[in-house]
């Protein structure tokens, strides 16, 4: 995994993006969401921001074991 496909900018080097940990937002789930992780080595859904590009927020689905990017979507319902 050395590139991400930004819906606006196309395939770009990974260094242009920043990974953001997905934190729980529903009330009452803060502790479990942070400290009680059930690890899934095959699937990880994450938020990334194209900080050195369009600054768009992306939802990236990856396989952390193989490094494959399964899906990249724009967050917030914008149109690319």
């Amino acid at each position: 995994m050395s590139r991400l496909h930004c819906p606006f900018c196309g395939p770009r080097e990974l260094r242009e993006f920043r990974f953001h940990k997905t934190l729980p937002t529903e009330p009452g789930t803060a502790f479990a969401g942070i400290y009680e992780r059930i690890d899934n080595p095959e699937l990880s859904v994450e938020h990334w921001q194209h900080v050195e590009g369009c600054r768009g927020w992306l939802r990236v689905t990856r396989n952390p074991s193989s490094g494959a990017v399964l899906e990249t979507r724009l967050l917030g319902g914008g149109v690319a």
Binding site: P41, S44, P64, S66, G67
Partner: peptide, 13 residues
């Protein structure tokens, strides 16, 4: 490297 991974491949940047 800055994001979760099991690949043992370091990022160039």
């Amino acid at each position: 490297d800055g994001f979760p991974s099991y690949t043992r491949e370091g990022q160039w940047d």
